[in-house]
Design a protein around this nucleic acid. Structure first.
Lengths: 144, 144
DNA sequence: TTTATAACGGATAATTTTGTCCGAATTAAA
DNA sequence: TTTAATTCGGACAAAATTATCCGTTATAAA
């Protein structure tokens, strides 16, 4: 469904969010360990999230990553996915055709449209806040 | 969503089905041209479909690929996807966790489950027959 | 029986994605 | 002011996926 980079990106964002709830800024090493991801690769992904203004970063000692609490409700999965994988998941044809729309649909166009609309709906309505609360309550997990 | 190989595989299967409706057996060259796919790569994918008993092949002059009409109703998208991409699309965790289930769910487990169940439902209930009929009527397309 | 056609199978190559390394820039703490 | 911690950025490497090549096998037609 998503690229590996995107999976790591979502996991990292959720972890950062959970820690930000407690006013904790976290660094790369801690994040990679917490979500069991390759450190250097995760660094690249975090940089993308910083550039997309989804997370904030601070250099130097006691630096690291955090999410501004005022944005908690506004950041959703859709933004993270778009930042990392682009929006091909929404716009691309299910069978890989370059040109596929209502006028010239592929054989599965309508059926895929339904599924993708629901996926989009889900990603857009799932906030980072919601996900971090589930984590905080110990109901969900980010590794294994 | 699917791998490129899987996209080509579905397109090829639909094309073969449409031609089989008219009792036409088609060869690799024709298929690759019709669906605008790389010939040699498509050959590999067709071999997978043959091994999975989704399509039939015949060697030699006037040989090629076809789909047994008696199977038209039984072959669905789910079988093609499973044959090429495996069933990770059904079973894998949306965030890439090795271990993710009701007992130890990732933060998006439930939401993804809903989407994937619908995807599965769609793939399982969409037959190759249905798709080939849309093509035959000139309503859907396999290239561009 | 010979020949040409087409799928099959294995090796190899190109491209993309995933992952690593390392030095530069920044900045808080000593 | 110096040092150490940390992100940032670019180059590089490994792995996976996509794609090609070419000889082998089977078989229909000549």
């Amino acid at each position: 469904m998503f690229s590996k980079a995107c999976e790591y990106g979502i996991r990292a964002a959720v972890y950062i969010a959970v820690q930000s709830l407690e006013e904790r800024r976290v660094n790369l090493k801690e994040i990679a360990k917490a979500i069991e991801s390759p450190e250097a690769f995760t660094a690249k992904i975090l940089q993308q999230l910083v550039k997309s203004n989804i997370i904030d970063s601070t250099k130097g000692p006691s630096g690291g990553f955090e999410i501004n609490k005022t944005q908690f409700k506004q950041i959703n999965l859709s933004q993270i996915v778009s930042a990392i994988d682009g929006d091909s998941i929404y716009t691309g044809c299910g069978l890989g055709l370059k040109e596929c729309d209502e006028n010239k649909p592929c054989p599965v166009h309508d059926k895929f449209k339904d599924i993708r609309d629901e996926l989009r709906q889900m990603l857009e309505t799932t906030s980072i806040e919601e996900l971090s609360l589930g984590m905080k309550e110990g109901l969900t997990f980010l590794k294994r």
